[in-house]
Write a protein that binds this DNA or RNA. Structure first.
Lengths: 196, 196
DNA sequence: ACCTTAACGGCACGATACGTGCCGTATTGA
DNA sequence: TCAATACGGCACGTATCGTGCCGTTAAGGT
């Protein structure tokens, strides 16, 4: 039974990721060490290094495993409502405790480790971007936003301020703030003739 | 002469900051250690720790000392031109080598060390924000942008996408991209009646 | 010109974490 | 039943941390 052995390996993998998340939540990512994770998971250090080449990539796996699926959302046909829903969901999950500090630390680690940065982009940022971009494209085809709107730019304008608050000023990101961003960005991309 | 002793202390302080920047440029911030900095600066470790409590705050000082003054800019009276000038200057300095990777690493460190985050905000982000915000306010009073425009939001909309590119997608930030951001944001805040 | 004081460079220390090697055990799959 | 694989535990050498001590140098008051 290959299933049986794979299940055992998966159990260990999950235990390690769980231990890493628990420790990061308790003491902060800065205090996270492979030794501590292995001890917490009742596992030898080899068992960790056999699965991940670095602390950063382990942490990437740990954070993504628990936030990947929880960001799905329906398409109602109303762009503004859909965008508000996805932005609110993302901010509530990744911008507040308990996940906020972990996501913040993950992006911080990505600034020091190119492999973490690449993995974060490929496995999380790009899929999420593609999803939201598809919504924007639908909206453009339906005439809810201007036919000449730059969708990639629109996405950056919507996401950028949220990340700026999370990573730089660290002010709280309220639903009201999301609404203001949405309104301002779409005001410049509404249907009809552009001002310039 | 207190001047003389102060000058000697300053020389050492500068030598340490210089050594830190050199090492960070050569090997990356991840490899930067207090030991290496002290050795490079021909200084004992105490002399470093007497001045800074942590590697992060030393690095903060080192990066800010060389980028603080170089971001001044004139006010011509044309908001768009002024904003384009300051954004271009900031991006050219902090978004490209040699300073780009260092600024990126500094923000990364701020995600792990609250003291670095606080110092970065107080000493760099907030002054820069205040300056740009004042320009926006001038523009609003002159009628170049809508009288009911939210200036803080406008600043976030202008800055956010640039930081998003620097820290997350790591795509190049061209002058043409800055122009597109400016145009899109101001399109939604132009003078005249608002759409909503 | 002298002398107290403070800052300094050099060295060593215990502590922590790194990544790897070895050993004996347990589980797997043929 | 047996060879192979993954495992937990332990130990090792290295790197860096932050601090303590020691002898030296330079500063500033008298």
């Amino acid at each position: 039974m290959t299933d049986r052995s794979a299940r055992r390996a998966d159990q260990r993998t999950e235990a390690i990721k769980r231990a890493a998340l628990d420790l990061a939540r308790e003491a902060g990512y800065a205090k996270l060490s492979v030794e501590a994770v292995a001890a917490r998971a009742n596992v030898g250090k080899h068992t960790v290094y056999r699965r991940w080449p670095s602390r950063g990539l382990l942490f990437l796996d740990a954070v993504l495993s628990l936030s990947a699926e929880e960001l799905s959302h329906p398409r109602t046909g109303d762009v503004v409502a859909d965008l508000r829903a996805v932005m609110t969901k993302a901010v509530d999950l990744l911008g507040r405790p308990p996940w906020g500090p972990l996501y913040q630390a993950l992006i911080g680690e990505a600034q020091h480790d190119p492999e973490v940065a690449a993995g974060l982009n490929r496995r999380f940022i790009e899929p999420q971007t593609a999803d939201t971009r598809a919504r924007l494209q639908d909206a453009r085809e339906r005439g809810e936003i201007a036919s000449d709107a730059d969708l990639d730019l629109a996405f950056d304008l919507l996401s950028g301020p949220l990340y700026y608050r999370l990573l730089i000023t660290q002010k709280p990101i309220t639903h009201e703030y999301i609404d203001r961003v949405l309104q301002a960005v779409l005001a410049g991309m509404g249907p009809g003739p552009q001002t310039r």
